[in-house]
Simulated scan of single mutants.
Amino acid sequence: MPRSILLSTAPPTIRTERLILRAPVAGDFPDYAAFLASERAQHMGGPYDRRGAWGLFCHDVAQWALFGHGALMIDLPSGICAGQVGINHGPLFPEKELGWLIYAGHEGQGYASEAAAALRDWAFGRPGIETLVSYVDPHNRRSIAVAERLGAHLDAGADRPDPGDLVYRHERPAS
């Protein structure tokens, strides 16, 4: 089996009109773990215990070294973290996935759409990212709405990690 080279891609800081997307730090874990322990994580295979949440958090961070992309935290200008957006990859994902999660109290303000659009546009400007999909639980109406606001369309024939998930395909913008 050929060996992979660890990439030295540092996570970017991406600024939008209202948000700052930045690299995760250890201090982000308590809020992340609380989200994953809540019923709100049911659409992501949860709720998760602390050990499971730590594994997912480390996965999000490690992808930057392994693939040159990964998760970014969604900060408000006040410094409050409202959630996370990321590009997931690796053996658990048939394709690179654009995903998002918003912490309680920050929903319904367009943060997920704004952050996901910014990371999608950044990703499509990088070498090696030709396609992006979002895997969405069919009962997660809010994430379906985000995917549709982003202009993604259902791709019924796409592979998916969970056979029950919907797959929304994000089109690469025309040059």
Rank of each mutant, 00 (worst) to 15 (best):
Pro173Asp: 13
Arg15Cys: 12
Gly151Asp: 13
Arg126Met: 13
His43Asn: 00
Gly157Val: 01
Ser38Cys: 03
Ser4Asn: 09
Pro77Asp: 09
Asp162Arg: 10
Ala41Tyr: 00
Pro161Ile: 05
Gly55Phe: 00
Ser175Trp: 02
Ala65Asp: 06
Glu39His: 07
Glu39Gln: 14
Pro163Val: 09
Asp159Met: 06
Asn88Arg: 14
His89Arg: 10
Arg120Phe: 03
Tyr111Ile: 08
Ala116Phe: 06
Ala23Glu: 12
Phe67His: 09
His59Pro: 05
Ser4Glu: 08
Gly79Ser: 09
Leu21Trp: 04
Leu101Lys: 02
Pro11Phe: 12
Ala156Pro: 11
Val167Gly: 14
Leu72Tyr: 07
Pro24Leu: 15
Leu56His: 02
Ala156Cys: 04
Val25His: 14
Asp137Ile: 03
Pro94Lys: 04
Trp54Gly: 00
Ala116Met: 12
Val61Lys: 13
Gln42Glu: 10
Ala41Thr: 05
Leu21Arg: 08
Ala34Glu: 11
His170Trp: 04
Ser175Leu: 08
Ala147Ser: 15
Gly83Met: 01
Asp162Met: 03
Trp54Glu: 12
Ala65Val: 01
Ile80Ser: 13
Ile5Arg: 14
Val85Met: 04
Gln84His: 06
Met73Ala: 13
Asp60Tyr: 15
Asp165Arg: 00
Phe35Gly: 06
Asp165Lys: 00
Arg149Asp: 01
Ile144Val: 15
Glu95Trp: 01
Glu148Met: 13
Ser134Ala: 13
Ala123Pro: 00
Ala123Arg: 08
Ala82Asn: 06
Arg3Asn: 10
Gly86Arg: 04
Leu154Phe: 13
Arg50Thr: 10
Gly99Thr: 14
Arg169Tyr: 13
Leu19Glu: 03
Tyr135Asn: 07
Asp165Phe: 07
Thr13Val: 14
Val167Thr: 11
Asn140Leu: 03
Trp64Tyr: 10
Asp155His: 11
Gly45Cys: 03
Ile74Tyr: 02
Ala82Glu: 09
Leu98Gly: 06
Ala104Lys: 03
Arg50Asp: 12
Val167Met: 12
